[in-house]
Amino acid sequence: MPQYRIIVDLSDRMLYLLDGNIVVRGFPVGIGKMVTQTPRGEFTIINKEPNPGGPFGAMWMGLSKPHYGIHGTNDPSSIGRIVSHGCIRMYNEDVLELSKLVPIGTRVTIRQ
């Protein structure tokens, strides 16, 4: 049984899926702007909402910090850029793949 966890590296704008200490996938992400920075620290995924609508793309995975999450986007050109209100944006196909792999309760580390 895989022991998945997620590390979001803000400096290289990548989300890494780890099984134990082994990186199994890396995904490019969009992160928060200077005035609405992505929070750093240790969080967990507390819920999943497919097709939340609006700018959240195909999937919303809420973090244990209220109002923050990992989600898809209706603006794929924003991936890899510093553009969000603090959330972690992914390509829709990537967030759908990730959401199938990680259960609610998965640990998410966000670091500089």
Rank of each mutant, 00 (worst) to 15 (best):
M90N: 03
Y91T: 10
L63D: 00
G57T: 04
R111W: 13
D94G: 01
F27Y: 10
Y4T: 09
G20L: 04
V24P: 10
R40C: 06
H67Y: 10
Y68F: 11
S84F: 00
I7W: 15
D9S: 14
G57W: 01
I104N: 09
P76T: 07
G54W: 08
R81G: 11
L17T: 02
L17F: 03
Q37M: 05
M59A: 06
M1G: 11
D75I: 09
V83E: 06
G69A: 06
P66N: 08
G32E: 04
G80S: 15
F56G: 01
P28R: 11
I88Y: 03
R81Y: 08
M59N: 07
Q3S: 12
G26Q: 09
T44W: 09
T106K: 03
Q37H: 14
Y91K: 08
V83Q: 11
N74T: 14
I110Y: 10
G53M: 15
M90W: 04
L98S: 06
I88N: 01
G80W: 04
I45H: 02
P76A: 11
M90E: 01
Y91Q: 09
E93M: 06
M61C: 03
G53L: 07
M1V: 10
L15V: 12
E49L: 12
R25S: 03
T38M: 00
L98T: 14
P28V: 13
